[in-house]
């Protein structure tokens, strides 16, 4: 554990709490992509199957349970409790274009050819693109509630912080790198660059998040 990794995980935790806070206080899931949230559940479930086989630490176990449970709860809020506030007609990204290639990549790139390891690879590839339906929705509507942008910023910060974490680990753990996680992580972070640009130049200056027409 190093400071970048810890801050990254806390940022990830914060992003989920911000999203829950947004849904509960506005009593609405307007502006949130159900597809992205459903992809995150898929990511967490396929990646964390090892909670039954490998004990890493209490920290690791607790975070995994929290990520699975909280994201399932968000799906429940969107699909049941605040269903009328979710508009599927603007959440139109075709997730099969993500699931198919990620499954193929996982079959090609993995560390061991076992069910658990291939699913782990799948989850890494899928996480790297799971935000696309959300970003696509943002692009379509051209604007976002400020709290939604804070959610995305925290999520992006989590990914960005994993990069110095890997660099730190490379130098402190005798040249160890995880090529699958690093490659997918770089792609994932790159997807946030456009968003970050608008976030830093507008939202943090007190303006509304609006994309140029």
């Amino acid at each position: 554990m190093n400071i970048f990794r810890l801050l990254g995980d806390l940022s990830h935790l914060a992003s989920i709490l911000i999203l829950l806070h947004k849904i509960q206080t506005t009593r609405s899931c307007r502006g949130i992509s159900f597809k992205t949230q459903a992809l995150y559940v898929t990511v967490f479930v396929t990646r964390y199957l090892d909670i039954f086989t490998d004990w890493v630490s209490l920290y690791n176990f607790t975070m995994k349970i929290f990520f699975i449970a909280s994201t399932c709860y968000i799906l429940y809020l969107m699909k049941m409790k605040y269903r009328p506030t979710h508009d599927p007609s603007i959440d139109t990204f075709r997730v099969e274009y993500l699931l198919g290639p990620c499954a193929l990549l996982a079959l090609l790139f993995h560390y061991r050819f076992t069910v658990l390891e291939v699913l782990w690879s799948f989850s890494i590839f899928l996480e790297s693109v799971a935000i696309l339906p959300q970003l696509f929705m943002l692009q379509r509507t051209g604007e976002a509630e400020t709290i939604t942008t804070h959610y995305l910023a925290a999520l992006g910060a989590y990914r960005a912080l994993y990069i110095p974490n890997w660099i730190y680990r490379y130098f402190t753990e005798s040249g160890q790198i995880d090529p699958i996680a690093v490659t997918a992580g770089l792609v994932q972070t790159a997807l946030y660059l456009d968003f970050f640009y608008v976030y830093f130049t507008k939202v943090l200056q007190g303006q509304k998040f609006e994309l140029p027409a």
């Binding site: 890493v56 690791n60 995994k64 990520f67 160890q176 995880d178």
Partner: peptide, 10 residues
């Protein structure tokens, strides 16, 4: 040996 990939990250 690929035991370096212990998946200790979230």
């Amino acid at each position: 040996d690929d035991s370096g990939h212990g998946h200790d990250e979230l």
